[in-house]
């Protein structure tokens, strides 16, 4: 585990802890974020996993983890983390394990569970003040089952259950605000394509005690329909267009860690992905494009 404070890209770890050979898709943005985060969290961790793409990180007898892992179910990973945390606390308190055997608990969840089925268990864990890091890889749909829309799907995105001309009619739920409404000790948005910003936040989160959210946008070549090598570029565009604001919540305040200036038009981001192709072909859907741009503008108008 690296204990030094990360200031520059060169401070990032150059050897990696997460084992290769996982069955995640080539170019998986979620795996990219996870592997960066794992280097910083280190092996004295137990990942409690909610059903999603990353269920298949550990398929008997293969695991990429050098620390520990527990698969639970889709709805209740935070409760699994609660059980592990409580048990470790009891063992420590009763001196049945030495302090160096302690582990920090990390929930690993996709957006399907985080924005939907798992909300109740997550809310409960935050209100109980559970000491855990909640890591959500958000690929904006039920990716493991073929990208049906979830509560995290952005407006107008085509998914396998919103394949019509206007795409998904709903709005992406604001999970960050749902978390901060609970007044957790920390919450942050990150993206694997911005490793320095991510690393600074993880370093910060790691040193805090209590409920902590790390919400990673996870560009998904399979579900978003783009060539795997574009994963990082699309991630950067998500930030530069203002679609994915990088921010953190600490001591009751939200701070944007990156304010894109000038902000690129959202269509620079949208046109990279097959899930938004219907906004450009056969004809540009100016109304929908305008709607999406206006929403992003309105968000930043409140920030800037």
């Amino acid at each position: 585990m690296s204990e030094h404070v990360i200031q520059r890209m060169k401070d990032l770890p150059s050897t990696h802890l997460l084992g290769s050979g996982t069955p995640m898709c080539a170019g998986c943005g979620g795996l990219g974020a996870l592997h960066e985060i794992y280097d910083l969290l280190g092996t004295r961790t137990v990942f409690v996993n909610a059903a999603g793409c990353m269920t298949l990180l550990s398929v008997y007898p293969f695991t990429p983890f050098r620390g520990s892992w527990l698969y639970t179910a889709m709805a209740s990973a935070p409760a699994g983390a609660q059980g592990v945390r409580d048990a470790l606390d009891i063992l420590l308190e009763h001196k049945r394990i030495p302090p160096e055997d302690d582990l920090s608990t990390v929930v690993l969840t996709g957006d399907g569970a985080a924005y939907g089925m798992g909300l109740s268990a997550t809310s409960g864990a935050i209100e109980r003040g559970l000491d855990f890091l909640y890591l959500c890889y958000d690929n904006e749909g039920y990716g493991n089952t073929g990208q049906q829309f979830s509560g995290a799907t952005p407006h107008a995105a085509r998914t396998s259950t919103s394949a019509g001309a206007r795409g998904y009619s709903g709005e992406k739920k604001d999970l960050f605000s749902i978390w901060t409404a609970h007044r957790p000790v920390y919450a942050a948005t990150v993206i694997g394509a911005e490793p320095l910003d991510l690393a600074k936040k993880i370093e910060k989160a790691k040193r805090l005690t209590g409920p902590r959210l790390v919400l990673a946008l996870a560009p998904c070549p399979t579900g978003w329909d783009f060539d795997p090598q574009q994963t990082v570029e699309i991630g950067r565009l998500a930030v530069r267009t203002g679609i994915w604001p990088l921010k953190e919540y600490l001591d009751g305040k939200v701070v944007h860690t990156r304010v894109p200036h000038p902000r690129q038009p959202v269509e620079d981001y949208l046109k990279t992905q097959g899930r938004f192709r219907h906004l450009f072909e056969p004809a540009r859907n100016e109304a929908l494009l305008g709607e999406i741009q206006a929403r992003v503008d309105a968000y930043w108008a409140n920030v800037e």
Partner: peptide, 27 residues
């Protein structure tokens, strides 16, 4: 850092080495 699969490690001389046993070819 950006290889999602941990398939590029840095050797003692600071040069990146691609692990072709595990590189999925995402590019």
């Amino acid at each position: 850092t950006l290889c999602p699969d941990s398939a590029i490690q840095v050797d003692a001389e600071g040069a990146p080495r691609i692990d072709y046993d595990h590189c999925k070819g995402c590019l």
